[in-house]
Design a protein around this nucleic acid. Structure first.
Lengths: 150, 150
DNA sequence: TAATATTAGTTGTAGATGCAACTATTTATC
DNA sequence: GATAAATAGTTGCATCTACAACTAATATTA
């Protein structure tokens, strides 16, 4: 029998979340992508380094959840464009110490307000309470998703 | 001045949604990926064809929001594995008519309950009202995201 | 009905992505 | 302290992805 009915794709939470996530991330990526030719992983690394200067690539991985080979290549690109600086840890010579360069900071300071503004516009129709509820549900679903085993 | 503070990556909605979406989609993708070596776009196409048999590749694009070259290649793979059938529209010979094959349906009928079950488990801690609120917010954010211009 | 535009689908290609293997260094164990 | 295990980071590679150019068929316009 063809034509399965319930749980259509359009009502399927994973699909809905994927669409929303892509729409939002894509809109912001268009800003830094068009203006500065920065990719999404590159931008996330810059955000983390703005918040936590002088951390290692490994800690960038942990904080961004970006896979280490991607971080390695993104760091290489950011270095080549002088958007970040890298020192080596004296005490552990495997370990790098990354931070935004002056240029990187200025790029960050130009892009970030736009990202912030986008987020603010996006959320402008939600009341403070609704936003809190929404964030809370995201946290709970994240927790739950991490626990479900198959 | 290094160390920018507010709106850390971890609190940034696009990032949070992206993590949640990847966690959920990834968990389900692991099911059909491991069991049947089906990719995410392939699975989404199968879901749409289960719901709407005998639609064209173009309509698959519209309904899944998957880019047409991906649909084309995914359809080719699904055809080669006999998971779907394709006829050509008599009235418009550019147009294909796609539907799940018997095998495709049986795969769908095996995977779908697991996906459903996963979704149910994921949402089991939310009350009916909370779920409705959550879905409503996703809809509103989708709408809003589509309207914001830059 | 001839010329043009639009639409459906395919294919070329460059770049992104993620796993696994690798090197170099440090830590743990005997 | 020598050997084994673990860790940080890089690189090879196969696959995925998306844009754009392309082919073929249909629709539109004159």
């Amino acid at each position: 029998m063809q034509h399965r009915k319930p749980l259509q794709l359009e009502a399927f939470l994973p699909y809905r979340l994927s669409l929303l996530s892509n729409a939002i991330s894509g809109a912001i990526a268009a800003v830094y992508g068009d203006k500065f030719a920065i990719s999404m992983p590159e931008w996330r690394i810059m955000m983390i380094l703005a918040e936590y200067p002088d951390i290692s690539a490994d800690e960038v991985c942990r904080r961004t959840k970006i896979e280490k080979s991607m971080v390695s290549r993104a760091v290489a690109r950011l270095l080549k464009r002088h958007l970040i600086n890298r020192d080596m840890d004296e005490k552990d010579r495997r370990r790098s110490i990354l931070r935004l360069s002056e240029t990187g900071l200025s790029v960050y300071d130009e892009v970030m307000p736009i990202a912030r503004d986008y987020e603010a516009k996006l959320l402008s129709d939600l009341s403070a309470g609704e936003l809190e509820t929404f964030n809370d549900m995201i946290d709970r679903l994240m927790e739950k998703a991490a626990r479900i085993e198959y």
